[in-house]
């Protein structure tokens, strides 16, 4: 067993998990508080990536671009809430699903019209483009370390926000009982819009952080959204803690599966069959995880206390 490799893969898994958490945290908030199923949440991830990519070329600085792109993505989220989402809250989940699917088609096409199909490669400043040696043999790209760092800090910030602020108190109350919050005389409309915009910024941030690695590209949101839904379902809808734990678990399962499954399969089948089966089975594992969790705990790992 190569422990350095195992360590690196765990780090890669945690990094993937944190990105998933950024997208999932917003989704679980919107779902938990607004009771709104937003398939188009992944589109905000894509918008974040494209806005940040364009701004990087405009400013010539990636970090500055992220700082400016964040509020822009928040505004986009705010507008989507005002124009579309708000009118859907009193309809049922099926209507949400259909309308936000329509929204995905609209946003994807608009993105294609604005930015073209080529995708944008995002350059990094030199100090982020190198590598860091953690110990002998364990070298990791510095940017991946930055993702881990910012993912953890955002997670910490969110925990503080949810647990120790007035807004957080309302959010927690809203997740378990919507009518109570509005009975308290809180402007629920504003609270909802704020939560939606916050979710958009979190998803957008994930898109910005991934774009220097995989480029900003059309359809990137649709690839992450389903995994994100798995995360919030496994974690329990509305639970920030659940989303965090589930995201890390799923990040690790995915990465470790890709790393070691082929070798394990190679022990019992031909190399060719193993190389086809391994990626498929590693893709399957997160769904097996979800099915097992739901079979045992039908409301996820950390179900909201009152519903």
């Amino acid at each position: 067993m190569d422990y350095t490799l195992l360590f690196l893969q765990v780090l890669n898994g945690v990094q993937l998990g944190l990105l998933l958490f950024l997208v999932a945290s917003g989704l679980t908030l919107v779902f938990g508080i607004l009771d709104f199923v937003n398939l188009a949440h992944g589109s905000l991830y894509m918008i974040g990536a494209f806005v940040c990519a364009s701004l990087t070329f405009l400013f010539g600085n990636f970090l500055l671009a992220v700082l400016v792109a964040l509020p822009i993505t928040g505004v986009v989220g705010f507008v989507i809430e005002r124009v579309v989402a708000r009118n859907l809250y009193d309809k049922d989940h099926l209507d949400h699903v259909l309308a936000t699917f329509g929204l995905i088609l609209v946003i994807d096409t608009l993105t294609q019209i604005i930015w073209g199909v080529e995708g944008i490669a995002v350059p990094l400043p030199a100090w982020l483009d190198g590598q860091v040696q953690l110990f002998e043999g364990a070298v990791i790209p510095s940017f991946r370390l930055l993702i881990i760092g910012s993912g953890l800090s955002v997670a910490a910030g969110l925990f503080w926000l949810v647990n120790y602020t007035r807004l957080g108190m309302l959010i927690r109350a809203g997740a378990s009982n919507r009518t109570m919050v509005s009975a308290l005389g809180i402007d629920i409309q504003t609270l909802f819009a704020l939560v939606f915009a916050l979710g958009a910024m979190l998803a957008g941030l994930a898109g910005m952080l991934i774009s220097p690695i995989t480029e900003a590209s059309i359809g990137m949101g649709n690839q992450i959204i389903i995994t994100t839904f798995v995360v919030i379902i496994v974690g329990g809808i509305g639970s920030m803690k659940g989303a965090f734990i589930a995201a890390i678990i799923i990040g690790l399962i995915d990465t470790l599966g890709r790393s070691f499954l082929a070798d394990i399969f190679g022990l019992v089948m031909s190399a060719d069959a193993a190389s086809t089966a391994a990626p498929a089975v590693s893709g399957m594992m997160i769904f097996i995880l979800m099915a097992v969790v739901l079979a045992l705990k039908p409301q996820g790992l950390f179900p909201p206390k009152v519903r």
Binding site: L5, L8, G13, V139, I210, T255
Partner: peptide, 12 residues
């Protein structure tokens, strides 16, 4: 599109 795991294996 993320090849971190594969690159780490290749290097190792």
């Amino acid at each position: 599109l993320d090849f971190s795991a594969e690159l780490a294996k290749a290097k190792a």
